[in-house]
């Protein structure tokens, strides 16, 4: 259909880059999003709530449109609703008024007061000091739990605090790794000094035969190339030696308990 393109700037128009000269043709996606926003704006005008689920970007645009609308078409809150909200707030059992406590020091009730907010450690998240605190929040609130309704899910701690926590965590991890390495090395040295080779726990009480050891002593040194194919015999020898050690451990235990130690064929 013949339509005047809407994107040619009218004569003498000045403005943003988006409107200088002809505006770009909308894409299909933009057309769809524009239509969606149009329907949502209709809901704003009608005082209807927005749909519960919508794309995040569309919601941000809708919020912006609603802010403009609300600034020029203020919506009255019905008296019934006001009573409801006030009654609900007063009925909350957790919201107990704290009794007045006169505190010396600077008065913090000035609006727009920006005061330092101590950080609850460990792991406590407090709002950036640049955010104005409600007057009267002052000292008594510094170590309190985050106030009801505060943001959650987003780490609002100052960058310096996050950095300190990160550095501390890294230092602790490195210290733990170092301690583990030192302990392991110590164990190795202790193990190396005992008969039976490295890596043994202290005080095992096992005889040399029962410890992990090389099979070299059984096989008698390097294997001649002519004998390299006779692996089966060597394996049988090593296996018999290890089985003997195993039986000694098992039957020694049973003998101590008075159990018969006959080996079944």
């Amino acid at each position: 259909m013949n339509e005047k393109p809407p994107y040619d700037a009218p004569p003498g128009a000045t403005g943003s880059d988006a409107d200088s000269g002809a505006e770009p043709e909308p894409t299909a996606e933009e057309l769809a999003r524009a239509a969606s926003l149009a329907r949502l704006v209709d809901r704003i005008s009608a005082g209807e709530p927005p749909p519960p689920a919508m794309p995040a970007e569309d919601r941000l645009l809708l919020d912006a449109a609603a802010m403009i609308h609300a600034a020029h078409q203020p919506r009255q809150l019905p008296a019934r609703k006001v009573n409801e909200l006030v009654a609900a707030a007063l009925a909350q059992p957790d919201a107990e008024p704290r009794r007045s406590s006169r505190k010396a020091g600077p008065d913090k009730t000035e609006p727009g007061f920006v005061g330092p907010v101590l950080l609850a450690f460990p792991g406590g998240a407090r709002r950036e000091a640049a955010t104005a605190t409600a007057p009267g929040d002052a000292d008594a609130d510094l170590s309190a739990a985050p106030e009801r309704g505060s943001a959650s899910g987003i780490d609002l701690r100052p960058r310096s605090t996050r950095l300190r926590v990160m550095v501390g965590t890294v230092v602790l991890a490195m210290a733990a790794a170092l301690a583990l390495w030192v302990w392991s090395a110590r164990q190795n040295r202790l193990g190396a000094g005992r008969p039976g080779g490295a890596g043994l726990a202290t005080g095992s009480g096992l005889g040399q035969k029962l410890r992990s050891r090389s099979a070299g002593s059984l096989l008698g040194g390097p294997i001649a190339s002519a004998e390299s194919g006779n692996a089966r015999a060597r394996m049988d020898l090593v296996f018999a030696d290890r089985l003997s050690g195993y039986r000694e451990v098992v039957f020694r235990g049973r003998a101590r308990r008075g159990v018969a130690t006959e080996v079944s064929p």
Binding site: L85, V86, A89, L90, Q92, A95, E96, P97, R98, R99, S100, S101, T109, A134, P135, G136, D137, A138, A140, D141, E147, R148, G149
Partner: peptide
């Protein structure tokens, strides 16, 4: 309102 109730003692 809830916050105001909680912090009324500090006002």
């Amino acid at each position: 309102f809830l916050t105001a109730i909680e912090k009324i003692g500090q006002f």
